[in-house]
């Protein structure tokens, strides 16, 4: 079996308050940016290893997601009509949640070596431009000393992510 890279996105159910998103929305307002209408956040897990889809689903469902308040999705994170900013640690920076995730995967009984990286994704709805999101990312979302960020435009056509799109060789 080939080594595959999977991207798991974990996010709050719509009926649950996303406190982090609300804090970001307020902080954006404090920056003097008034064009953001809505913010969502999600946690990202990038898993690399010889993992079957069934194992990934099990990891996502049993380990990474709190089934009461959260849902997960495999693949590139996106929301219809929303810009997104992904933030990841730079290579070599200690990623403690990733370390714990790797250990917890072993505890699940999945003995394949898996390399994990964690990141965060922020979705923004509103009349936005890329340079506004770069300003927001620099001021609030990423510390470029240890993190990198990438701004993504709203997708056209794809809805709620393609579950297969996270699976790459």
């Amino acid at each position: 079996m080939q080594k595959l890279i999977w991207l798991v996105e974990v996010f709050y159910r719509p009926e649950v308050t996303d406190g982090a998103a609300e804090a970001i929305r307020k902080a954006v307002e404090e920056l003097g940016i008034s064009v953001v209408e809505k913010v969502w956040t999600s946690s990202l897990y990038r898993l690399e290893g010889m993992l079957e889809r069934t194992s990934i689903v099990r990891i996502a469902r049993e380990l990474l997601t709190d089934p009461i308040s959260q849902k997960y999705r495999l693949g590139f994170p996106q929301r219809p009509g929303a810009w997104s900013v992904q933030v990841w640690y730079k290579p070599g920076v200690t990623d403690t949640v990733a370390e714990t995730t790797q250990k917890a995967i072993l505890d699940l009984g999945i003995n394949t070596p898996v390399t994990v990286a964690t990141g965060r994704c922020y979705f923004f709805q509103g009349k936005l431009r890329e340079n506004i999101l770069v300003s927001i990312a620099r001021a609030l979302l990423a510390n470029e000393l240890i993190e990198i960020f990438q701004v993504y435009q709203p997708s056209r056509g794809k809805k709620n992510g393609d579950q297969q799109s996270g699976k790459r060789n």
């Binding site: 730079k90 070599g92 920076v93 200690t94 990623d95 403690t96 714990t100 000393l145």
Partner: peptide, 10 residues
Amino acid sequence: TSVVQIGNPI
């Protein structure tokens, strides 16, 4: 970057 430490309380 290398001067930054990240902790793991667990």
